[in-house]
Write a protein that binds this DNA or RNA. Structure first.
Lengths: 108, 108
DNA sequence: ATCAAATATCGTAATATTACTATATAACAA
DNA sequence: TTGTTATATAGTAATATTACGATATTTGAT
């Protein structure tokens, strides 16, 4: 075993899980926060910013991109990465929904 | 290699990553959604609800609890698990913040 | 054409996760 | 006590992730 049984869950559940998983690493959170900080969508001087090797950063960027959390567009030799607002909105909605549901519940 | 370099990131970054990671599995999303659905905080008839063995569910519950996403209190033979609103609020705030920051940015 | 800069990909070692079976523990009921 | 129910833990196989060095690839400059 060891493989996740994705086929037993709904598409929505898998989608949220994939996005959350992509955020489930401090380096990827740091990348997101860096992209936010530099306002303009600067590419990989992220390598200078984080204590990780270039191939590792590249791998993390790929996962963020696959999950739809960032977008990247070619800009000469470099690539301009930036936040994909849509996906973050989806997350915010999802959690807002959870909270408003919980608000009406009494438990433990 | 293989171990995450947590010590290079801020406490906040690690905390968000830990919470996100806990949500990064469809079974755990399904557990959260089930807890929301049953309103009252019913314990592990989750085992009947999901296509996973009891110890696997127990393991997933433990991770959700460690991340602070759910709370569990002993109720006789069983344990009453329920959503921990606080942590979800934290997430919602975090993403709301990201969105309002991105809203002012132009990129790619 | 040649070189440098920016990224991506390959291969791989170390470690973590997922899921299971078997077994333990804890609380209540008969 | 004995059994039953609910849950947790231990051990383990299969697989995934993380990180890196080495090596492509791609584009722009000289």
């Amino acid at each position: 075993m060891g493989a996740t049984k994705t086929d037993h869950f709904t598409d929505q559940q898998n989608k949220i899980a994939i996005i959350a998983k992509a955020l489930g690493h401090p380096a990827r959170i740091a990348i997101i926060e860096y992209l936010l900080k530099v306002n303009a969508c600067i590419c990989s001087d992220i390598v200078d910013e984080l204590p990780l090797a270039q191939p590792t950063i590249s791998q993390h960027l790929k996962e963020l991109k696959n999950a739809g959390l960032i977008k990247g567009s070619i800009e000469g030799t470099s690539i301009c990465y930036c936040i994909n607002e849509e996906t973050f909105s989806l997350l915010k909605e999802y959690f807002a929904n959870i909270i408003s549901t919980v608000a009406n519940q009494k438990c433990c």
